[in-house]
Design a protein around this nucleic acid. Structure first.
Length: 560
DNA sequence: AAACATAGCAACCGCGGGGTC
DNA sequence: CGACCCCGCGGTTGCTATGTT
């Protein structure tokens, strides 16, 4: 092993390359037998050596590179270098608009599966895509924009539904079904068609979102995975960005929010009632308490340009999240229509927050880890096994594999759950999309993703049918239905849901699944909550808890 | 012009899956 | 069946370039 040094390259190195030449001890230096491996930036000489090696020996067996080429790099490093920079046919340079669109679409569908995404983008590497996405996230986070354009979310969800419905993939298979691995996965040609349709339409007065906002306002704080708060931006900068978001003029911003104020007094109220919720504006002190929680969760609204005296408090609550979890933009979207008066209670809340466990638990929620995914999958499996063994058909009309009803109901809930296993999946961001409509933002970004959400979910507008008096004959079921509707995801899915008249059953299934997951004690808590009226105001919170981490359920169950 | 902040990128690290012995 | 190794993936870190004050 010649102790090769790339002196010739040093001249090409950044000024600190000398430091990069630091030869660090490699922990994986099995092949070198104590050989010291180089870390840091690659030199052109190293590149050449690696390229040469790969030409001769092909890819793979990276640990052998060091042995055979004299390159003092660990196999990992070689592989990475090759894959990300030296591999032929690599596309360099900025992503094209098409690529960006594809990435957004893919990410909406599969989350942080960079390698898989890269497979759909010839010449692009996972690392590149990852970096792009992280950058994009930050950008949008700063801008207070939702992570996805609503259409993307809907599109992704629709495709999911289509995949299931047409593919006949039942719940069991679904767990292993990877839409992207199926041949019929197509990236929609038209995703952003509507993006500009509504551009400039302000004030934005979506109906549905506020339903969920109501729930948000009413839910307990501990339930939120979205406890990430807007990044602490210097006031000036935030203002600047805010104004950037409203290219028209600052006045338009004001108008937009003005109407939101009206909206909250009006539509929100009605909507909340229509779905059996107490209005967030009801001056019930206890409710208000919850509201303050909701504000926390939705506090991102402020980053949309709605400044508030509460802003500084964000710092106090600023929490670190793994890179991709923040649906902070979602958060912001959700909170877009939050009431300013409530913000005051944010401060109160912040000063006396709930037990730290609440936040910690949620902030470290496995949302990003797919744990919920796993749990739900397990639940599903358990349920399935249970059904098989006891042939109990309490909530399904038949037990055929195709069991349209059952599988569809499951599909309605599960696809998004599965997808939600990913931090930023269609349903994980359905709320984003939904509430992004609340965001009176007329984006001025140049790239597609900077465009404001434009299309309203007219189809979703307060699908109150489920809580139509006709359904009140079964209060418990109705309550669970409310529970269901308290989930923005479900609201998003209501387009489909409304066609399937399976609301109650779905909730029943959901309930069962949860019961299975929680075990008897927690399940009884859950059911108790779910059957009580209080759940209508906490349904989302509870669901959210379940969504994000089970322990939080306990906490919620203690909620008055 | 300097100091500081931020964005973007490249590389590293830790972990887990799969294969082999 | 378990230990070991290789490989790949996703998350994180560190550095540089660029923008802002």
């Amino acid at each position: 092993m010649t102790c090769k040094r790339d002196d010739s390259d040093d001249e090409m190195l950044p000024k600190d390359q000398a430091e990069s030449q630091l030869i660090n001890e490699s922990n994986g230096g099995s092949s070198g037998g104590g050989a010291v491996l180089k870390k840091g930036p690659w030199t052109s000489t190293e590149d050449a050596i690696l390229v040469d090696y790969v030409k001769k020996h092909g890819e793979g067996n990276w640990n052998a590179v060091q042995k055979h080429s004299g390159l003092f790099r660990c196999g990992k490093s070689c592989r990475l270098r090759w894959a990300n920079h030296l591999r032929p046919n690599l596309k360099k340079g900025a992503f094209t608009a098409e690529e960006e669109q594809v990435i957004i679409e893919l990410h909406a569908k599969m989350g942080n599966k960079w390698a898989r995404m890269a497979a759909h983008l010839p010449g692009r590497t996972d690392n590149e895509i990852k970096n792009y996405w992280n950058t994009r996230i930050k950008r949008r986070q700063r801008a207070g924009l939702p992570l996805y354009p609503p259409e993307v979310t809907v599109q992704a969800y629709q495709e999911d539904q289509l995949d299931q419905n047409t593919g006949g993939v039942d719940g069991e298979d679904r767990g292993q079904h990877d839409p992207l691995q199926s041949n019929n996965y197509d990236i929609p040609d038209v995703i952003f068609d509507n993006l500009s349709a509504n551009q400039g339409i302000l004030p934005y007065v979506p109906e549905l979102p506020d339903i969920s906002v109501s729930n948000m306002l009413l839910k307990g704080v501990g339930s939120s995975p979205y406890c990430t708060l807007p990044p602490m931006l210097p006031q000036q900068k935030r203002f600047r960005e805010s104004t950037d978001l409203f290219p028209g003029s600052s006045g338009s911003v004001g108008n937009g929010f003005c109407s939101f104020e009206q909206f909250r007094d009006d539509t929100c109220h009605k909507v909340a009632r229509s779905i059996g919720l107490s209005s967030p504006l009801d001056s019930d002190p206890t409710t208000k308490n919850s509201q303050s929680f909701g504000v926390i969760q939705g506090s991102h609204s402020l980053s949309n340009g709605n400044s508030s005296a509460s802003e500084p408090t964000y710092g106090a609550l600023k929490l670190e999240l793994p890179s991709l979890q923040y649906t902070e933009t979602d958060l912001g979207s959700w909170g877009t229509s939050l009431q300013r008066p409530l913000l005051e209670s944010v401060d109160a809340f912040i000063q006396s927050p709930p037990p730290s466990g609440a936040f910690e638990a949620d902030c470290s929620s496995p949302r990003n880890s797919g744990l919920l995914d796993a749990l739900l999958h397990e639940s599903k499996t358990l349920r399935s096994a249970k059904n098989r063994s006891s042939d109990k058909s309490s909530n399904s009309s038949s037990a055929t594999p195709g069991d349209k009803a059952d599988s569809s109901t499951l599909n309605i809930c599960e696809p998004e759950w599965e997808d939600c296993g990913d931090p930023i999946s269609p349903l994980g961001h359905s709320a984003t999309s939904l509430f992004s409509e609340c965001t009176p933002i007329s984006a001025c970004g140049s790239s597609l993703d900077e465009q404001p959400p434009a299309e309203t979910f007219t189809g979703i507008s307060v699908k109150s049918e489920p809580v139509d008096p006709a359904l009140t004959l079964d209060m418990e079921k109705e309550t669970t239905t409310r529970l269901n509707f308290s989930r923005p995801d479900v609201l998003l899915a209501s387009d489909w849901l409304q066609q399937s008249s399976g609301y109650i059953k779905e909730q029943s299934i959901m309930s069962d699944a949860i019961a299975t997951l929680l075990g008897d004690d927690l399940a009884s808590d859950y059911k108790h909550l779910a059957s009580g009226t209080s759940i209508s105001s906490q349904g989302w919170g509870l669901n959210s808890c379940l969504w994000n981490n089970m322990p939080a359920v306990c906490q919620m169950s203690d909620h008055p």
